[in-house]
């Protein structure tokens, strides 16, 4: 049974369009990848316009490459701004990653990936400047997401929570907290107790960040491949991630939560089941908080 006013959402992907249209499930919001809707004239644009009539839309970008030292692509920002204008989304997000760089005398290329940036003063300056530029153009704050990183860098001036908290303080942007990404990083770092390590990360964030920094939580499944855990959004949310998510909600308060599934998509009902699970978690947390506040009063 879905609650009357759910907070949570699912990522809407093309194989589910028809089923989604027929089922019209009760959800707090629907998230899509911004770039797939840049063209205002294609069939996908019609789908999003129709979905927008019934749902709040969260636009999740993958191509801004906000951490790129050579800057963001102005044309990309313009297309995003036009999409934001058309859809009037509830949130706009992208990642703390780079993808654009000069390459082999061919000018600036775009790796179409979420490549890791170092947590240094230098990279923070770059990220802040790019985020500010985009926010000024969109006339609204962004949410910036923490990465699954398969490589990272020896030089660092900040821990990741410090780095993201500082980004929020300097630019006014929020954080899109991807709990699955934290778990993937903990597993690839062979942490002895990955759940504890992710909870410690969240505790540090709660300690250093301005309250309300986290504007959305992402949950997804991962898969083990040759020698690495890959964040491929191909499975049910793992039990350790649910545990860490519960902790995040306790520390950060109620935050809209999203189920992401991109590879080997199951039936829509499976995604909705995951969203209902997240909803129950939020409700339990809300009830517990009300009880605590009631007892204190």
């Amino acid at each position: 049974m879905q609650p009357a006013h759910p907070m949570n959402g699912i990522g809407l992907r093309q194989p589910h369009y028809r089923e989604f249209r027929a089922a019209r499930p009760t959800l707090g919001f629907v998230e899509v990848h911004s770039e797939n809707f840049f063209n205002p004239h294609d069939a996908a644009a019609q789908v999003l316009a129709a979905v927008r009539q019934d749902y709040a839309i969260s636009l999740h970008g993958v191509g801004l490459a906000l951490g790129s030292a050579c800057g963001v692509d102005d044309a990309h920002v313009e297309r995003l701004a036009a999409l934001v204008e058309r859809i009037d989304p509830v949130r706009v997000s992208d990642h703390a990653s780079f993808a654009r760089a000069p390459w082999s005398q061919r000018g600036i290329i775009h790796a179409n990936d979420l490549l890791p940036i170092a947590f240094t003063h230098d990279s923070l300056d770059i990220l802040c400047s790019n985020v500010e530029q985009v926010q000024e153009r969109l006339k609204r704050p962004l949410l910036v997401e923490n990465l699954s990183a398969y490589l990272d860098f020896a030089e660092r001036d900040f821990s990741e929570p410090q780095f993201l908290a500082e980004l929020g303080r300097r630019t006014g942007c929020g954080l899109l907290l991807d709990v699955n990404n934290l778990m993937v990083n903990a597993l690839n770092a062979h942490e002895a107790d990955p759940v504890q390590s992710v909870c410690d990360w969240i505790d540090e964030l709660a300690h250093v960040a301005t309250p309300g920094l986290v504007g959305e939580i992402h949950l997804a499944g991962f898969s083990a491949q040759e020698g690495l855990i890959i964040d491929d959004h191909s499975a049910l949310v793992s039990e350790p991630v649910w545990l860490a998510c519960r902790h995040a909600l306790q520390r950060l308060g109620p935050v809209p939560t999203l189920i992401e599934w991109d590879e080997r998509l199951p039936a829509l009902s499976v995604l909705l089941g995951e969203a209902a699970k997240a909803e129950a978690l939020c409700a339990a947390h809300r009830d517990a908080r009300i009880a605590v506040e009631g007892a204190a009063a």
């Binding site: 030292a69 760089a101 390459w103 082999s104 170092a118 990279s123």
Partner: peptide, 17 residues
């Protein structure tokens, strides 16, 4: 001496492509 973020990014892109 520290590596600039710009140089780090160029080197990673070179390695990928």
């Amino acid at each position: 001496p520290r590596m600039s973020e710009a140089r780090r990014q160029r080197e990673l892109i070179d390695a990928i492509f």
